[in-house]
Simulated scan of single mutants.
Amino acid sequence: MISTEKLASIREQFPVTKRQLYLDSGHQTPLSSSVRDALVSFLTEGYEMAGPKPVWVRRVEETRANVARFFNASPSEIAFTKNTSEGLNIAANAVPLEAGDNVVLIEGDHPNNAYAWLNLKSKGVEVRFVPLKDSEIATAETFEPFIDKRTKVITLSHVTFHAGQVHDLASIGKLCKERGIYLVVDAMQSVGVIPLDVKALNISVMAAGTHKGLLVPQGLGVLYVADGLDELRPAYLAMSSMLNPPADYIARPEDMAVRKDALRFEFGNVNLPDLHALDAAIKLIESVGVSEIQKHVNELGDRLLSEMEALDITVVGPRASGQRNHIYVLELPVAEWADFFARNNIRVSPERGGIRVSLAMFNTVEDIERLVEVIRIGLLNKTRRPTAAQMD
C-alpha cells in the first residue's frame, strides 16, 4: 500500500476526491493539478507568444523519450496517435496479410480491436474468435488450438474493460515469438497501472490511449512498433512518414521510401497540448512508481472482494491475485443501481455484467469503506420496499 503521507499528497493532486467518490478510472481519470498546470502553461505560451513551435517540438521529443523509457522501448519505437482505436487500425493495415491468412482474437474483447481486424475480411483475411469465460484469463494454451501455419496475428487487450482479467502476455508473447506470429496488444486499461516491458513480453505492436492510467485528457494515443519490423508499412503517407522528406516541400514520385522507425505511422502535427500534459503525468506516475500503484490497487481490490463476499454480492471476473488488478464488476442490476450510486455522489460505470468499479492510485481504504456503506444502505432499502402484494 502507498504510504499514508504519500497517498495524502497524491490525493491533493486530484481535487475531484474532495467532491465525490471517484471509482471510474477505467472510463477516464480526472485531471491532476500538475497535468492541468502543464496544459495551462502550454496555452499561455500560445496566447502570449503565438506558439514557440520549435520549443514545443523539442518537448515532444523529450516526451517521446520518456514514454519509451516507461515501456523499456527506444524513442524510435514510439509514435503518437489520437487514441487506442487508431493505433489498432494502423496495426491491422500495416501487417502484411494476404487472403487465406488468419488473425486470432478473444471473443468479447473490446469491439474496437475486433472491428479493426474484421474490416480485413473483405480482403480474404479470416478472423478467428477464441471463447473465454469472464472468470478465466488467456494464456498461450488458450490460443494454441486456434492457430495454424496461416496465423499471422494474435491480438488482445492486456486487461479487459468488462471483467478486469489480466491476461498472461508473457506466455502468449513467448508462443508468438516461437511461431513467428505478430503480437498486437491493446494496453488501454493497463498503461500506468501495471508495469509493461514490451521487450520482455515480446510485443510486436502496442496501442493505448492516455486518458485512463496515463492521466491525460482524450485525444492522444501511444503506439509502440518494435524496431526491425520494416515489413509493417503505413496505409497512409505524409511527408513526415518519408525516409527522405523533400526540403522544398515538392513530392518526389521516384522516392517513396518510408522511414524505418515508428514515426512512419505518425502523420504531421501531433496533439501538442496533450503531449505537454503527458510529460507531467509520467513524472507524477514515476514519483510513485507503477509497481507501487499496482500493489496499491491490488490491496484495495482485496478489501473490496472481501467486503462484497460478506454482502453476498458476486464479482465478475477472476479472483486470484495476479489475474486481476484494478477493475471489478459487481453483479448489481444496472437499471436499479446506476442512478442510486449517482444520487450518492459515487462515480462508477455501467458494464455488461453490472456496475464497474475501477481503482486508481488516489483511491484509499476509506473510499472502499464508503462504497460498501452505500451498497449496504441500498441493499437494506431494497429489502424494505413493499411488494406488489403488500401494496394491495
Rank of each mutant, 00 (worst) to 15 (best):
H167K: 10
M206I: 05
L31S: 08
G108F: 02
V55E: 11
R11T: 07
I282V: 11
L380R: 12
A138Q: 05
V316H: 05
A257F: 09
Y236L: 13
L201G: 03
Q13A: 10
L118F: 08
K123S: 12
L43S: 14
I375F: 07
D230G: 07
I90A: 07
A99R: 13
M242G: 10
R59D: 06
G268I: 12
V334Y: 01
N112T: 14
P195W: 08
R370W: 04
Y328D: 02
S240C: 10
E292R: 14
F340M: 03
E48G: 00
L229D: 01
L118T: 02
E336Q: 10
F161P: 01
N325S: 15
L379M: 14
S240W: 08
P318Y: 09
L132A: 04
E5G: 04
F267Q: 12
R264L: 07
A50C: 05
E12K: 15
Q323I: 00
L183Y: 03
L243Q: 14
A342G: 00
E136D: 15
E107I: 00
W56A: 07
D24I: 00
M239W: 11
T387C: 01
A338W: 00
P333W: 04
M188W: 02
T63F: 01
V348N: 01
A200L: 13
M256H: 03
P111W: 10
A238G: 15
